[in-house]
Nucleic acid binder design. Sequence first.
DNA 1: TCCGTATGTCACCGTCTGGTGACAGACATA
DNA 2: TATGTCTGTCACCAGACGGTGACATACGGA
Lengths: 206, 206
Amino acid sequence: MAKPKKPAPEASSRDREATEKRIIEAAARVMARDGAAALGINAIAAEAGADKKLIYRYFGGLDGLLEALGAETGVWIGELSPAAKGNYGQRMLAAFTAYADKLRGDAVLQKLLAWELAGPSPALARIEAARSKAMFGVMMKVRGEETPPPGADAPAINAIVLAALNYLVLRSASMGNFSGMPLKTEADWKRVTAALEGILAKVYEK
Amino acid sequence: MAKPKKPAPEASSRDREATEKRIIEAAARVMARDGAAALGINAIAAEAGADKKLIYRYFGGLDGLLEALGAETGVWIGELSPAAKGNYGQRMLAAFTAYADKLRGDAVLQKLLAWELAGPSPALARIEAARSKAMFGVMMKVRGEETPPPGADAPAINAIVLAALNYLVLRSASMGNFSGMPLKTEADWKRVTAALEGILAKVYEK
DNA sequence: TCCGTATGTCACCGTCTGGTGACAGACATA
DNA sequence: TATGTCTGTCACCAGACGGTGACATACGGA
């Protein structure tokens, strides 16, 4: 059922751990290639060359598999280590650009992000909460002893910037532009970063 | 097939225009209630109390229907008329907040927006292009004779702000928060607006 | 009056979906 | 050697999906 090949080439290695890994990777591949809408039991099983029954046995269904997938893809956020130099605004800019660069290269997380917007789901909410916490840790680390100028609502401002970056990266992947601004080449992103730098410099100047 | 009722209560009014309208409204209702993923021929036809065959006859399929739907929901953007007072930054802030307020109340456009991020589609791209053009017109109108200060990349800055607003509204509808910031009550949005006001005032001051 | 056309209705098709029960073979333990 | 457990395989189900051909009926023009 799983593969059209008859002698079961290598899939049936009778190794649960390896099979689980194969399934998770297959799910990531389907997610990145065809989007979250195509993320079905059958599609994943076919991609992994494994029987869908195993997905139920090992992960308890799609939700469990998704959770395992989301846990993996969210790890790198906590490992971001942008340069921590200059004042508060400059450090934040470094964190934001480092995050945006990474996100631009992670198709799976992009689809996950887009899917979260399309409809609420308990499993996705948990994944997102972990990601948000990791991002907070990164920002606290890079912030160091520097503090935002009094009077500025830093959490709100940072949320706005982060929201803009998420949206622009998603638009870049889906349509390649936004609001008349192209978002394809590296130069396009340089422009975004430059505008962001100007904003943060003025908002966070003391 | 369409309705379980036998005498065809009123649906079969033999009025193409009215039927088309009923179908479009049904599509909007399904979209707003169940999201874009549930937007299928069968679901729409059932919701409209019309036969799915008519969707193929009148709209040529799902894509055509979507286009008709998108054209309708994008109209209000062009009709936005925010207060055009003060300098460039203040006028832009008025346009942005007016847009965000409207968007928050339009569940259909929200789902459309989220769907565009999930995967590229020629039909959705055309709808989005029309919307973007309308938004540009609004901004040009409210801008009046005021100009942004030299040195500031106004298109990029405005795109960033618009991107942030889109993302925050979408997050508000799906998860109710972002980056630790709640996005539910009117007070939450007041906070966003206030932060935006601070940003625009400093970025666009001469 | 008759006839063509437009509108609406229904039955049916093949395909894919998520999900489950039954079974075969490998492996470790007793 | 015999037993039980774990991994993998396959067949099958009911239901939903998109899509189409055939038909009934109302309406408007000749």
